[in-house]
């Protein structure tokens, strides 16, 4: 069990990146969903032991990992959002180096294992090529290979599917799913599909706070009967967004297909009921407050008791 309590991170500025985040994460896949700048990477880096928090605690199976990051690193597989490799090494050599440092293998075993891992991430054909010649996607795959190497009890992956084509993304999903059967995998992403496909539970983070912690099923169920879909002209979209909570708006054959959340469960004119998706739930969870521009529109109190949704830590002022 990975337990996080009241994690706060204030950067010089001051900029408060985390405002007292608390979570309990058990075995299996757990997603952390939020927009850019929400504090996901800060949270992940603190958990990975490469960033010191301002206050708070993190424990893994009862062991304080902030005080002893070395103990965490030996059971950690980490894929950061932004990383690089030594450009003059080949992919094989780079991975072997990492395997040796992680204590996964040594000697001849290292070479075999590295080859297998590269095969697994579809990089075997480029094993002998220097890393500086890799594309962004190839580097990402190499990063995945090193993250899953060994037998990490905790895997932290931060925006892992960036740079991957759809086929590679699905291949990666399978790898993660396989890993998550017996260990904790923490996935941070702003792509809702990643969470929908992989995570039985997830948390939504916004402005350094966890605003909700639920499962995709629960999140969709909470919106049952309150999502409606219709088509509007482009000129009417802005007025609709001002009047209603629009969860999605996509162009289809030149017209805007929009989905709205109507808490009253009454279909507005021109709209028909739709099956809620995780994107809908994400939007509703993210925008619980009234629209700041006009003060109108439905609100969801920050600690709203949505059935099936574990309440988040209430907003509070961070002492600056």
């Amino acid at each position: 069990m990975l337990s996080v309590r009241n994690l706060v991170k204030v950067y010089p500025g001051p900029v408060t990146a985390l405002q007292g985040v608390s979570l309990d994460i058990g075995t299996g896949m757990f997603g952390l969903l939020g927009p850019n700048g929400a504090g996901k990477s800060t949270f992940m880096r603190i958990l990975a032991g490469v960033l010191e928090p301002t206050s708070g605690s993190v424990s893994l199976d009862g062991r304080d990992v902030l005080a002893e990051p070395e103990a965490l690193w030996s059971v950690l597989g980490y894929l950061p959002q932004d990383f690089g490799f030594f450009p003059h090494l080949t992919g094989q050599a780079m991975l072997e180096y990492l395997l040796e440092l992680k204590g996964v293998a040594s000697g001849k075993e290292t070479r075999k294992l590295a080859a297998s891992l590269l095969e697994r991430v579809n990089l075997a054909y480029a094993a002998k090529r220097k890393v500086k010649e890799y594309s962004g996607g190839m580097r990402q795959r190499l990063g995945i290979a090193q993250a899953v190497a060994g037998d990490p009890r905790l895997i932290i992956v931060d925006e892992p599917t960036a740079g991957l084509d759809p086929e590679e993304r699905h291949r990666f999903y399978r790898i993660l799913a396989e890993l998550a059967e017996h260990r904790t995998v923490l996935l941070s992403t702003h792509i809702v599909e990643d969470v929908a496909v992989l995570c039985p539970r997830f948390a939504v983070i916004r402005n350094g706070q966890v605003v909700a912690e639920t499962s995709p099923t629960e999140a969709r169920r909470m919106l049952a009967g309150s999502i409606f879909e219709g088509a509007v002209a482009t000129g009417d979209l802005a007025a609709l967004q001002a009047a209603k909570r629009v969860t999605q708006a996509v162009l289809v054959e030149g017209r805007n297909r929009v989905r709205i959340h109507e808490p009253s469960r009454e279909a507005p004119s021109g709209f028909e009921p739709a099956i809620p998706t995780l994107e809908d739930a994400y939007f509703v969870l993210m925008h619980g407050r009234p629209n700041a521009t006009n003060g109108t529109g439905p609100t969801v109190p920050s600690d709203a008791r949505v059935p099936g949704v574990t309440p988040a830590v209430p907003d509070r002022e961070v002492v600056r």
């Binding site: 070395e70 040796e100 891992l117 054909y125 480029a126 190497a149 037998d151 396989e178 890993l179």
Partner: peptide, 26 residues
């Protein structure tokens, strides 16, 4: 890379479990 990259998942690839990896602090 395009010329060399295989079209689909490689056949007979070991699963992670079959790789029987374990890690310890070097």
């Amino acid at each position: 890379a395009a010329a060399k990259a295989p079209d689909g998942a490689p056949a007979a690839t070991l699963t992670l479990g079959e790789l029987a990896m374990h890690s310890s602090a070097a």
